[in-house]
C-alpha cells in the first residue's frame, strides 16, 4: 500500500462522474510510482554495481586467464586462495599498503585536527583560508602526482635542491622503500589534510562555547580544553574520518602507479617497493590477464579492509577510555 497522507478523513465530496477514473489512476500512481522512482537507481546499480561484486566471488574460484584458451569457466575451487597465501608479491603489496597507509593517514589526521583548530579562530579572510586548504583536494590525482614526481626528481627536483641547502645529499626517492613510501604519503597528505580539517572544523563549530567557558573558569588551559572538550566532542567525526581515510588508503592506486617512472613492467617500483594492493591487482588482471587469480586478490583485499577498519574502530573507541570524557 502506498499512501501518502492516509490520515486524511473521508470528507471528500462524492466524486462526480468521470472523476472515478481519475482517482483510480491516482491510486495506481501512488502504489506503483514509488517503485518506478527507485527503479533507475536499482536497475543500473544492479547491473554495473551489484552484479560485478557477486561475480568477483564466482571468478575467484575459476582458473580463467587470458593466455590459456578454454580456461574460462573452469572451476578450481579454492586454489587461487591457497596460492595467494604463498604469493610473496601479495604479502609484499599488503606490507606496502599498510606501511604507506599508516604514514599517510596518521600524521594527516593529526595535522587536520590542528589545522581545524587554527581555522576555528575568528579570522579575517576566513573564506580565503578555507578555500585555499581545499584546493589540493579538488585537483586530480593524475595531475598532482605528475607535479610531485617532478618536485621529487633526483637530479633537478626542487625538494632535493632545498634538502641540499641543508646539507642532505640527493635522494633517489623512487629507489628506496622508505623514501618512496614517504614521498607517496606526502602526496596523499597534501591532497587530503585540508578536506579533513574542514570536516573537523564543521564539528568544532557545533561544540557549545559554554563548555570552554566553564572549563576556563575551572582553570583548564588551552591544551587541557582541547584534550578534554574538543577531542571527546569530536569523537563521532574522528571516527568517520578514520573509517573513510582507512578505506581510501587501502585502495590507494593513482599515486603509487604514476609515481613509478622507471618504465619497468613491474608497476610499483623496480623492486616492488611501493607496489600496493590495488596496483598489484591491476597488474595481475590487466597486465597479466589472470582474471581468476586477480578476483581472489580483490576478495582478499576486501577482507583486509574489513579487518583493518574493525581494528581502527576499536582503537578509536579506546580514545574515549583514555580521555575519560
Amino acid at each position: 500500500m502506498a499512501v501518502l497522507a492516509d490520515a486524511r478523513p473521508a470528507q471528500r465530496q462524492p466524486a462526480p462522474p468521470g472523476r472515478a477514473r481519475v482517482s483510480r489512476w491516482h491510486r495506481l500512481d501512488l502504489t506503483v510510482s514509488p517503485y518506478l522512482y527507485v527503479a533507475p537507481f536499482f536497475v543500473i546499480f544492479g547491473v554495473f554495481g551489484l552484479f560485478p561484486l557477486l561475480y568477483t566471488g564466482y571468478l575467484s574460484l575459476s582458473g580463467w586467464r587470458e593466455d590459456q584458451d578454454g580456461s574460462r569457466g573452469t572451476f578450481v575451487g579454492l586454489a587461487n586462495y591457497t596460492r595467494l597465501l604463498h604469493d610473496q608479491f601479495f604479502w609484499n603489496a599488503l606490507k606496502n599498503t599498510i606501511g604507506i597507509g599508516i604514514i599517510s593517514t596518521v600524521p594527516q589526521l593529526m595535522l587536520a585536527l590542528g589545522l581545524a583548530h587554527l581555522l576555528n579562530y575568528r579570522l579575517r579572510g576566513r573564506t580565503f583560508f578555507r578555500m585555499s586548504v581545499l584546493v589540493p583536494n579538488v585537483t586530480s590525482v593524475a595531475a598532482v602526482t605528475i607535479i610531485f614526481v617532478q618536485l621529487f626528481g633526483r637530479d633537478y627536483g626542487l625538494i632535493n635542491y632545498v634538502l641540499h641547502l641543508f646539507g642532505v645529499s640527493r635522494i633517489d626517492w623512487q629507489a628506496g622503500t622508505w623514501s618512496s613510501w614517504l614521498a607517496i604519503s606526502l602526496i596523499v597528505t597534501w591532497r587530503w589534510t585540508g578536506y579533513n580539517a574542514l570536516i573537523y572544523l564543521a564539528s568544532m563549530q557545533a561544540v557549545p562555547f559554554e563548555l570552554y567557558e566553564s572549563a576556563a573558569l575551572d582553570g583548564a588551559g588551552r591544551w587541557r580544553q582541547f584534550r578534554s572538550i574538543t577531542i571527546p566532542m569530536l569523537r563521532p567525526t574522528i571516527l568517520f574520518t578514520v573509517i573513510v581515510s582507512t578505506i581510501g588508503a587501502l585502495q590507494l592506486f593513482g599515486e603509487p602507479l604514476l609515481f613509478n617512472v622507471s618504465q619497468t613492467p613491474a608497476a610499483g617500483g623496480s623492486q616492488h617497493q611501493f607496489q600496493v594492493m590495488a596496483v598489484y591487482t591491476y597488474q595481475t588482471f590487466l597486465g597479466n590477464g589472470k582474471y581468476g587469480y586477480g578476483s581472489a586478490i580483490s576478495w582478499a583485499m576486501f577482507l583486509v579492509i574489513v579487518v583493518i577498519v574493525g581494528i581502527n574502530l576499536t582503537l578509536v573507541r579506546r580514545l574515549r577510555g583514555v580521555e575519560g570524557a
Binding site: 546499480f45 561484486l53 588482471f285
Partner: peptide, 29 residues
C-alpha cells in the same frame, strides 16, 4: 512516499555505500 519494502531498500543503499568500489572492478572490466 510509503511503499512496501522501502526500509529494506534504504538499508541496501546504505550497505552498498560501504563496499569498496574496487571489489567489482575485474568483472566490470
Amino acid at each position: 512516499l510509503r511503499f512496501r519494502g522501502r526500509h529494506a531498500l534504504l538499508a541496501v543503499i546504505v550497505a552498498t555505500m560501504m563496499v569498496p568500489t574496487q571489489l567489482g572492478i575485474i568483472p566490470l572490466y
